[in-house]
Design a protein around this nucleic acid. Structure first.
Length: 892
RNA sequence: GCGGGCGUGGUGGAAUUGGUAGACACGCAAGACUUAAAAUCUUGUUCUGGCAACGGAGUGCGGGUUCGAUUCCCGCCGCCCGCACCA
């Protein structure tokens, strides 16, 4: 083969990319008559480099986008940048630069390699979330949400880093210390803005049922996150004292210390509690059936009653401070030993006047869930049991498991939470769990002490961040009028460029003029201050898909009608790490936008189909000094690995997600240079199922590269010239076999793409290519099969497909070519191979006519040599013939 | 602790209404071409006995249902992921 006919990706790929760009073929038309298809991948953060994870993510979306285009859909497949966030600020601090310059330089650096990958993207709709036009629109949305009662302000606990002077997200707190400063993080109450996502708790939960093209896993995670539970909210009224002090539990361990001789002024505490909370203590429970097993009431250290006592009683203060020392990480809290403090207060049991229950402050009760107070039923709740055993509180079983005797039944160290008959429970005796719950709720309601309620674990979304590089919250704070929305005509509230990071904290807060100069209260006109907090960047990614649909321009114009037309996204592709936060926030946002009248999207669902792809992994290499070595710096020398340069022996370690810190990364741009974009794309889709991780290996890439050459060679070896849309209707013999194979392969390729099982489509493409490689004829059947092959490959390797299409004399671009139609007549064979089993083991096979009658089949089967040998002296008991499938002979 | 998922050759993985287990690829081995290498092509490759013909075993382990189970049911074991004192 001469040089000129070799496939040269480095020359071919840029050439076609230019053709595509000049013809503007990826522009999506809002007004098209065709059915719409919106394909979207989670947009990237502009870190400065694209990595293999991006390649895999966008390659998957691109397969779907191109496939749907070939099927006649008007496809929207856009790209943009999730460009606000902390890394830009950190980089600015580290390099003495500016977050904005850093961000936009990175975007420019990433766009080019992304375009070299040849994705079918409509770049005309590109934007970055840090564009003024984008965050101006986001400020409008914030104000709309405010108008519609979806935004509010309240004081809430936050993680405060006292060195960096900023709030940290939970993920940024590592072992109770700030991830950057290393300082011990404090819990601090701060004024924060919140989005009322809890308004939609029920709708967000119910909506999950309709998302049948979402992974089960993600739906379950969201359902758990929303955490609906039904139960009873009721109050325990104070047990009025008779002037006598109740004996307190005197000796109890508190982090190793033993406190004795408590000197609580019980009476003062009681008076305070009674005055501030005259009705008693509200609790929430899902097990009101176990009320007769209650032996105490526990309140959170953050409960208002505990806080009152914190003010008045030194011992309570000690205790609460002790609780706070445990740390803030969820895991630390979950594993912390149970701590309790007996307040001396008493409440009345609702069903039995003679019973009073002590009120404890307990560290395992969370203020953020329910009412921040519970009743403890040790026999039937593990936490309550641990607590009761530690502090010597009574344990009264009230649910009798089947087979146990009421007289002798006792829980040991394991609380019983299962089904059973109620006992020791007065009017509830004999009822089962659900009946008992209903009856107890009914009774409490009758008594006016409470009612059945539904609780959610989901909390409102705190969105205030003390950060510069984010969307400014469009609010003016006035001393006399409070927080006021920035008037519409004053938007955008633009970020000032002249800031500095020489001190920790938020540069907006100490900017010489931005906060106050010319800022007046929109209501009273007096001098006022800007809100200096910016919005959580998760807000940015909660509606960007609508901005693509509505073609947001640089003046901030957004066509909400067009956005409504494109939504929902038909196929969304991204990492499973966003299963809860991003994907839940976006579902909230679209509902908010709908209810504010901006989006016409009755379901409120932004993503009709979701696919969560696996990661790209690579082995980690370490040299003799224990330093990580880049894969490209490792060479094979005999049976050992060496580091280029130092010749240090290299050890191959675990195969894990590519990460810069472990240096187990391969730069996509280097692969594009060495093998071409098509090869990179093909490889990340070829071997592993899309939802699983794929290991990047040199040999795998070379395999993909060989395959691309093979396709080109098959095309180059073709001299027939009728074009790739040929149909060989009168093919016979080998030609007919090739046709059948091509159509069967096509059937499976389509099914693979539809089911997001690209690896199986790839296998079918291999098979078809191998068959074509062997096929010697230069006829219509060859051309037909080639036409099918090239169009099937086009979504995966578009450059190679375009080049082959042109070489075969295809009209126009393969991008515009229709998806191959499968001729169903080609899928059925006249003769079939029928496996023969004896007692379920394969003993032979039969080549017979497809519609041979059963009795004929049985005769032939019984005559088979292998079958006879297997039966031997045995007697045939039964012959099972499944037409077209199998024959099984039962013999003994 | 709760929830979800997964266990198939040397490796990645096929076999989605219970019907030939191992498609396709990687790797490996042998051969062809070549002075040689690379590239390419051909053949073989679950384990095991056998020169072969032909057998035996086999989808994490143990049971069950069935003419027939990777697939369905029960009980274990192991790994991964998510949530985690949510009352």
């Amino acid at each position: 083969m001469s040089e000129s006919t070799k496939y040269n990706a480095a020359e071919v790929e840029p050439r076609w990319q230019q053709v595509w760009a000049e013809a503007d073929i990826y522009r999506a038309e809002d007004s098209s008559d065709k059915p719409k298809f919106y394909a979207l991948e989670m947009f990237p953060y502009p870190s400065g480099r694209i990595h293999m994870g991006h390649v895999r993510n966008y390659a998957m979306g691109d397969v779907v986008a191109r496939y749907k285009k070939a099927q006649g859909f008007e496809v929207l497949h856009p790209m943009g940048w999730d460009s606000f966030g902390m890394p830009a600020e950190n980089a600015a601090i580290a390099t003495d630069g500016h977050p904005k310059d850093w961000t936009y330089n990175n975007i420019d650096e990433m766009r080019a390699p992304m375009q070299r990958l040849g994705f079918a993207l409509d770049w005309s709709r590109e934007f970055a979330t840090s564009d003024v036009a984008y965050y101006k629109t986001q400020q409008q949305i914030f104000l709309k949400f405010w108008e519609n009662d979806l935004v509010y302000r309240k004081t809430a606990k936050v993680n405060w880093d006292p060195v960096d002077n900023t709030v940290l997200a939970n993920e940024q707190v590592i072992d109770g210390k700030g991830w950057r400063s290393g300082a011990t993080v404090e819990q601090r109450d701060m004024d924060q803005w919140f989005f009322k996502i809890t308004n939609y708790a029920e709708e967000l939960l119910e909506g999950l049922d309709g998302l049948d093209r979402w992974p089960e896993k993600v739906r379950t995670m969201q359902a758990n996150w929303i955490g609906k539970s039904e139960g009873l909210q009721m109050r325990f009224e104070w047990a009025v004292p008779n002037g006598e002090k109740r004996p307190l539990v005197e000796n109890y361990p508190l982090s190793g210390d033993v406190y004795t001789n408590l000197e609580l002024d019980w009476h003062d505490d009681f008076t305070t509690a009674l005055n501030n909370h005259p009705d008693g203590i509200e609790v929430f429970t899902t097990r009101p059936d176990t009320l007769f097993g209650a032996s105490f009431v526990a309140i959170s250290p953050d409960h208002p009653i505990a806080k009152n006592m914190f003010e008045t009683t030194a011992r309570v203060e000690d205790f609460i401070l002790e609780c706070q020392k445990i740390g803030t990480s969820e895991e630390a809290i979950a594993q912390a030993p149970k701590l309790g403090f007996d307040t001396g207060l008493l409440v009345q049991h609702p069903f039995d006047e003679s019973i009073t229950l002590p009120v404890w402050i307990a560290n395992f009760v969370l203020m953020g869930y329910g009412t921040g107070a519970v009743f403890g039923c040790p026999a039937h709740d593990q936490r309550d049991l641990d607590f009761a055993r530690k502090y010597g509180l009574p344990v009264t079983p009230v649910v009798l498991p089947e087979g146990e005797d009421a007289a002798t039944y006792d829980v040991g160290t394991e609380a019983y939470t299962g089904e059973g008959k109620l006992f020791n429970s007065s009017f509830l005796n004999g009822l089962n769990k659900s009946k008992g719950i209903k009856t107890a709720i009914h009774k409490i309601s009758e008594m006016g002490l409470g009612e059945g309620v539904t609780q959610y674990r989901l909390r409102d979304w705190g969105v205030s961040r003390q950060r510069y590089w984010g969307c400014p919250i469009p609010v003016i704070k006035c001393e006399s009028c409070g927080s006021q929305p920035v008037p519409e005509d004053q938007l955008p509230v633009e970020l000032p460029y002249d800031i500095n990071f020489d001190k920790p904290g938020n540069p907006l807060d100490r900017h010489p003029t931005w906060k106050t100069e010319g800022v007046t209260c929109p209501k009273c006109g007096e001098a006022a201050e800007r809100e200096t907090d910016t919005l959580d960047t998760f807000a940015d990614s909660s509606w960007y898909f609508a901005a693509f649909g509505g073609s947001l321009d640089q003046d901030g114009n957004l066509d909400w009608e067009a956005a409504s037309k494109w939504l929902p996204v038909d196929q969304y592709v991204g990492g499973v790490e966003h299963a809860v936060l991003h994907l839940l926030y976006a579902r909230f946002f679209t509902r908010g936008l709908r209810d504010c009248g901006l989006l016409d999207l009755p379901s409120g669902e932004p993503f009709a189909g979701l696919f969560t792809q696996g990661m790209v992994t690579h082995a980690v290499y370490t040299d003799e000094d224990g330093d990580y070595v880049l894969p490209e710096d490792v060479i094979e020398d005999g049976n050992q690995l060496l580091r280029i340069g130092t010749k240090s022996i290299v050890t191959k370690g675990d195969v894990i997600k590519m990460s810069k810190s472990k240096k187990n990364v391969v730069d996509p741009d280097e692969i594009i240079k060495g093998y071409g974009a098509d090869v990179a794309r093909w490889f990340v889709l070829s071997d592993s199922p899309p939802e699983r991780d794929v290991e990047w290996t040199e040999s795998g890439v070379i395999g993909a590269w060989r395959f691309s050459k093979k396709v080109w060679n098959v095309v180059s070896a073709t001299t027939a010239t009728d074009g790739p849309l040929s149909v060989a209707t009168d093919a016979k013999g080998d030609a007919l076999e090739l046709r059948k194979l091509a159509h069967r392969a096509m059937e499976n390729i389509t099914a693979g793409i539809e089911a997001f099982r690209f690896n199986t489509s790839v296998a079918q493409i291999y098979e078809l290519t191998n068959a074509l490689n062997k096929y010697k004829g230069q006829d219509a059947a060859r051309l037909e099969a080639l036409g099918i092959l090239i169009r099937a490959i086009a979504p995966f390797m578009p450059h190679l497909a375009e080049e082959c299409w042109a070489k075969l004399g295809g009209e126009g671009l393969v991008y515009h070519a229709p998806w191959p139609e499968v001729d169903s007549k080609m899928l059925v064979d006249d003769t079939i191979t029928l496996p023969l089993q004896v007692n379920g083991k394969r003993r032979g096979e039969l080549n017979i006519a497809k519609d041979l009658p059963k009795d004929e089949i049985e005769k032939l089967a019984m005559a088979d040599e292998g079958v006879q040998r297997a039966i031997g002296d045995g007697t045939v008991r039964k012959v099972i013939i499944v037409p077209g499938r199998i024959v099984n002979i039962v013999a003994s």
